[in-house]
Protein backbone atom coordinates (compact mmCIF):
# COMPACT_ATOMS: atom_id res chain seq x y z
CA UNK A 1 0.00 0.00 0.00
CA UNK A 2 1.39 3.39 -0.88
CA UNK A 3 2.14 5.25 2.27
CA UNK A 4 3.51 8.71 1.80
CA UNK A 5 4.57 8.88 5.42
CA UNK A 6 6.78 5.81 5.02
CA UNK A 7 7.99 6.62 1.56
CA UNK A 8 7.76 10.38 1.13
CA UNK A 9 8.74 10.64 -2.49
CA UNK A 10 7.14 13.12 -4.84
CA UNK A 11 7.50 11.93 -8.40
CA UNK A 12 7.62 14.50 -11.12
CA UNK A 13 5.30 14.25 -14.07
CA UNK A 14 7.17 13.69 -17.30
CA UNK A 15 8.28 17.03 -18.72
CA UNK A 16 7.88 16.23 -22.38
CA UNK A 17 5.61 13.22 -22.69
CA UNK A 18 4.49 11.99 -26.08
CA UNK A 19 0.95 13.17 -26.65
CA UNK A 20 -1.75 10.57 -26.15
CA UNK A 21 -4.20 12.30 -28.44
CA UNK A 22 -3.57 13.48 -31.97
CA UNK A 23 -4.28 17.02 -33.04
CA UNK A 24 -7.31 15.74 -34.94
CA UNK A 25 -8.72 14.34 -31.73
CA UNK A 26 -7.94 17.45 -29.71
CA UNK A 27 -10.99 19.44 -30.63
CA UNK A 28 -14.21 20.29 -28.92
CA UNK A 29 -17.40 19.83 -30.89
CA UNK A 30 -19.54 22.83 -31.73
CA UNK A 31 -21.99 21.77 -29.08
CA UNK A 32 -19.24 21.54 -26.50
CA UNK A 33 -17.93 24.90 -27.57
CA UNK A 34 -21.34 26.46 -27.06
CA UNK A 35 -21.41 24.98 -23.58
CA UNK A 36 -17.95 26.38 -22.86
CA UNK A 37 -18.99 29.81 -24.10
CA UNK A 38 -21.98 29.69 -21.80
CA UNK A 39 -19.82 28.83 -18.82
CA UNK A 40 -17.39 31.58 -19.69
CA UNK A 41 -20.24 34.06 -19.73
CA UNK A 42 -21.27 33.04 -16.23
CA UNK A 43 -18.25 34.59 -14.54
CA UNK A 44 -16.85 38.15 -14.49
CA UNK A 45 -13.71 36.82 -16.20
CA UNK A 46 -13.40 33.69 -18.28
CA UNK A 47 -11.03 32.10 -15.74
CA UNK A 48 -13.96 30.91 -13.66
CA UNK A 49 -14.95 28.45 -16.36
CA UNK A 50 -11.72 26.44 -16.27
CA UNK A 51 -12.87 23.91 -13.68
CA UNK A 52 -16.02 23.14 -15.63
CA UNK A 53 -14.10 22.85 -18.87
CA UNK A 54 -11.57 20.51 -17.28
CA UNK A 55 -14.50 18.37 -16.18
CA UNK A 56 -15.90 18.40 -19.69
CA UNK A 57 -12.52 17.43 -21.10
CA UNK A 58 -12.13 14.62 -18.60
CA UNK A 59 -15.54 13.24 -19.51
CA UNK A 60 -14.65 13.47 -23.18
CA UNK A 61 -11.09 12.15 -23.12
CA UNK A 62 -11.21 9.98 -20.01
CA UNK A 63 -8.30 11.73 -18.35
CA UNK A 64 -6.24 14.87 -18.61
CA UNK A 65 -2.86 14.42 -20.24
CA UNK A 66 -0.95 17.70 -20.77
CA UNK A 67 -2.20 18.25 -24.30
CA UNK A 68 -5.79 18.10 -23.10
CA UNK A 69 -5.12 20.56 -20.29
CA UNK A 70 -3.54 22.85 -22.84
CA UNK A 71 -6.61 22.52 -25.03
CA UNK A 72 -8.86 23.54 -22.15
CA UNK A 73 -6.65 26.51 -21.34
CA UNK A 74 -6.72 27.68 -24.95
CA UNK A 75 -10.45 27.16 -25.18
CA UNK A 76 -11.09 29.17 -22.02
CA UNK A 77 -8.43 31.72 -22.87
CA UNK A 78 -6.20 31.47 -19.82
CA UNK A 79 -2.49 30.63 -19.54
CA UNK A 80 -1.73 26.93 -19.87
CA UNK A 81 0.37 27.01 -16.68
CA UNK A 82 -2.62 28.26 -14.70
CA UNK A 83 -4.82 25.47 -16.02
CA UNK A 84 -2.11 22.94 -15.26
CA UNK A 85 -1.73 24.28 -11.72
CA UNK A 86 -5.46 23.97 -11.21
CA UNK A 87 -5.62 20.47 -12.69
CA UNK A 88 -2.90 19.22 -10.35
CA UNK A 89 -4.42 20.86 -7.28
CA UNK A 90 -7.71 19.00 -7.35
CA UNK A 91 -7.72 15.26 -6.78
CA UNK A 92 -10.72 14.42 -8.95
CA UNK A 93 -8.96 15.42 -12.14
CA UNK A 94 -7.13 12.38 -13.48
CA UNK A 95 -3.72 13.41 -14.71
CA UNK A 96 -2.94 9.79 -15.53
CA UNK A 97 -5.05 7.22 -17.27
CA UNK A 98 -7.18 5.20 -14.88
CA UNK A 99 -9.14 2.03 -15.27
CA UNK A 100 -12.56 2.18 -16.86
CA UNK A 101 -14.11 2.24 -13.42
CA UNK A 102 -12.40 4.05 -10.60
CA UNK A 103 -13.45 2.85 -7.17
CA UNK A 104 -12.88 5.61 -4.63
CA UNK A 105 -13.27 3.96 -1.26
CA UNK A 106 -13.69 6.32 1.66
CA UNK A 107 -11.64 5.31 4.67
CA UNK A 108 -11.86 8.60 6.46
CA UNK A 109 -13.36 9.34 9.86
CA UNK A 110 -16.80 7.70 10.11
CA UNK A 111 -15.98 5.30 7.30
CA UNK A 112 -12.81 4.23 9.08
CA UNK A 113 -14.64 3.30 12.25
CA UNK A 114 -17.43 1.63 10.28
CA UNK A 115 -15.24 -0.63 8.17
CA UNK A 116 -14.01 1.49 5.26
CA UNK A 117 -10.67 -0.30 5.36
CA UNK A 118 -12.42 -3.68 5.43
CA UNK A 119 -14.11 -2.76 2.17
CA UNK A 120 -10.86 -1.43 0.73
CA UNK A 121 -8.98 -4.61 1.61
CA UNK A 122 -11.85 -6.77 0.39
CA UNK A 123 -11.68 -4.99 -2.94
CA UNK A 124 -7.90 -5.37 -3.01
CA UNK A 125 -8.14 -9.12 -2.66
CA UNK A 126 -11.20 -9.40 -4.88
CA UNK A 127 -9.59 -7.46 -7.70
CA UNK A 128 -6.08 -8.74 -7.02
CA UNK A 129 -4.58 -5.27 -6.91
CA UNK A 130 -3.28 -2.89 -4.32
CA UNK A 131 -4.79 0.46 -3.66
CA UNK A 132 -3.62 2.91 -6.29
CA UNK A 133 -3.34 0.17 -8.93
CA UNK A 134 -5.37 -0.79 -11.96
CA UNK A 135 -6.42 -4.33 -12.87
CA UNK A 136 -4.64 -5.87 -15.83
CA UNK A 137 -7.80 -5.82 -17.89
CA UNK A 138 -7.95 -2.07 -17.39
CA UNK A 139 -11.41 -2.30 -15.86
CA UNK A 140 -10.83 -1.19 -12.31
CA UNK A 141 -8.65 1.27 -10.49
CA UNK A 142 -8.83 1.21 -6.72
CA UNK A 143 -8.24 4.37 -4.70
CA UNK A 144 -8.47 5.35 -1.07
CA UNK A 145 -10.10 8.74 -0.69
CA UNK A 146 -10.96 11.29 1.94
CA UNK A 147 -14.43 11.94 3.34
CA UNK A 148 -17.06 11.95 0.61
CA UNK A 149 -19.81 13.37 2.78
CA UNK A 150 -21.94 10.28 3.19
CA UNK A 151 -20.90 9.47 6.73
CA UNK A 152 -24.32 8.24 7.80
CA UNK A 153 -24.07 5.51 5.17
CA UNK A 154 -20.56 4.37 5.99
CA UNK A 155 -18.75 2.52 4.63
CA UNK A 156 -19.21 3.76 1.11
CA UNK A 157 -17.45 4.35 -2.17
CA UNK A 158 -17.81 6.43 -5.28
CA UNK A 159 -17.58 5.07 -8.80
CA UNK A 160 -15.51 7.16 -11.21
CA UNK A 161 -16.35 10.56 -9.76
CA UNK A 162 -20.02 9.79 -10.15
CA UNK A 163 -22.33 7.43 -8.37
CA UNK A 164 -22.20 6.91 -4.62
CA UNK A 165 -22.60 3.34 -3.45
CA UNK A 166 -23.36 3.40 0.23
CA UNK A 167 -23.75 1.13 3.24
CA UNK A 168 -21.31 -1.32 1.77
CA UNK A 169 -21.08 -4.96 2.74
CA UNK A 170 -19.07 -7.65 0.99
CA UNK A 171 -22.26 -8.74 -0.76
CA UNK A 172 -22.99 -5.25 -2.02
CA UNK A 173 -19.42 -4.90 -3.22
CA UNK A 174 -19.76 -8.20 -5.10
CA UNK A 175 -22.99 -7.01 -6.67
CA UNK A 176 -21.42 -3.70 -7.63
CA UNK A 177 -18.46 -5.36 -9.32
CA UNK A 178 -20.83 -7.65 -11.20
CA UNK A 179 -22.90 -4.71 -12.37
CA UNK A 180 -19.83 -2.83 -13.52
CA UNK A 181 -18.40 -5.87 -15.27
CA UNK A 182 -21.66 -6.16 -17.17
CA UNK A 183 -21.09 -2.64 -18.38
CA UNK A 184 -23.94 -1.24 -16.36
CA UNK A 185 -23.90 1.76 -14.10
CA UNK A 186 -25.17 1.24 -10.58
CA UNK A 187 -28.44 2.99 -10.02
CA UNK A 188 -28.67 6.19 -8.04
CA UNK A 189 -29.90 5.31 -4.60
CA UNK A 190 -31.42 7.73 -2.21
CA UNK A 191 -30.62 6.94 1.38
CA UNK A 192 -33.81 7.35 3.29
CA UNK A 193 -33.91 9.79 6.14
CA UNK A 194 -34.68 7.89 9.35
CA UNK A 195 -37.35 10.44 10.18
CA UNK A 196 -38.99 9.82 6.80
CA UNK A 197 -39.08 6.14 7.53
CA UNK A 198 -41.12 6.98 10.61
CA UNK A 199 -43.24 9.75 9.19
CA UNK A 200 -43.61 8.83 5.53
CA UNK A 201 -43.11 5.13 5.77
CA UNK A 202 -40.09 5.22 3.51
CA UNK A 203 -38.21 7.39 1.12
CA UNK A 204 -39.86 10.63 0.19
CA UNK A 205 -38.63 10.53 -3.37
CA UNK A 206 -40.75 8.51 -5.76
CA UNK A 207 -38.43 9.03 -8.74
CA UNK A 208 -35.41 7.14 -7.49
CA UNK A 209 -34.57 3.79 -6.09
CA UNK A 210 -34.91 3.95 -2.38
CA UNK A 211 -32.51 2.42 -0.05
CA UNK A 212 -33.11 1.66 3.58
CA UNK A 213 -30.05 2.12 5.66
CA UNK A 214 -28.64 -1.06 7.05
CA UNK A 215 -28.72 -1.52 10.73
CA UNK A 216 -26.86 -1.85 12.93
CA UNK A 217 -23.57 -0.30 11.86
CA UNK A 218 -20.92 -2.74 10.74
CA UNK A 219 -17.93 -3.35 12.95
CA UNK A 220 -14.58 -2.35 11.51
CA UNK A 221 -12.12 -5.23 11.50
CA UNK A 222 -9.21 -3.14 10.28
CA UNK A 223 -8.46 0.49 10.86
CA UNK A 224 -5.66 1.03 8.39
Amino acid sequence: MTNFIKDPVVMMAERNPDPVFSNDELVFSDQEKRLIERWKSQYPTVDGAIMRVLWLAQEKFGFLPPEVIRLTADEVGIPYANAYGVATFYTQYYKKKRGKHVLDVCTCFSCQVCGGYDILHYLESKLGIHVGETTDDGLFTLQEVECLGACGSAPMLQVTNGRYVMDLTHERVDALIDTLRKGKTPEFTSVTLPQDEDELGGNRRSDVKEFQASSPRPVSETVR
Binding site: Y43, V46, M51, N82, G85, Q92
Partner: peptide, 24 residues
Protein backbone atom coordinates in the same frame (compact mmCIF):
# COMPACT_ATOMS: atom_id res chain seq x y z
CA UNK B 1 -20.07 25.70 -9.81
CA UNK B 2 -18.66 22.21 -9.61
CA UNK B 3 -15.58 21.66 -7.47
CA UNK B 4 -13.09 18.89 -8.15
CA UNK B 5 -11.85 17.44 -4.91
CA UNK B 6 -10.25 19.69 -2.34
CA UNK B 7 -11.37 20.03 1.27
CA UNK B 8 -9.86 23.47 1.47
CA UNK B 9 -12.50 24.86 -0.88
CA UNK B 10 -14.94 24.78 2.01
CA UNK B 11 -12.88 27.59 3.54
CA UNK B 12 -14.58 30.67 2.21
CA UNK B 13 -11.57 32.54 0.87
CA UNK B 14 -10.09 29.56 -0.96
CA UNK B 15 -13.56 28.83 -2.27
CA UNK B 16 -13.39 32.27 -3.84
CA UNK B 17 -10.03 31.47 -5.45
CA UNK B 18 -11.45 28.21 -6.73
CA UNK B 19 -14.43 30.03 -8.25
CA UNK B 20 -12.02 32.36 -9.97
CA UNK B 21 -10.41 29.37 -11.64
CA UNK B 22 -7.28 29.37 -9.52
CA UNK B 23 -5.57 26.94 -7.24
CA UNK B 24 -7.65 27.14 -4.10
Amino acid sequence: HKGAGAYICGEESSLMDSLEGKRA
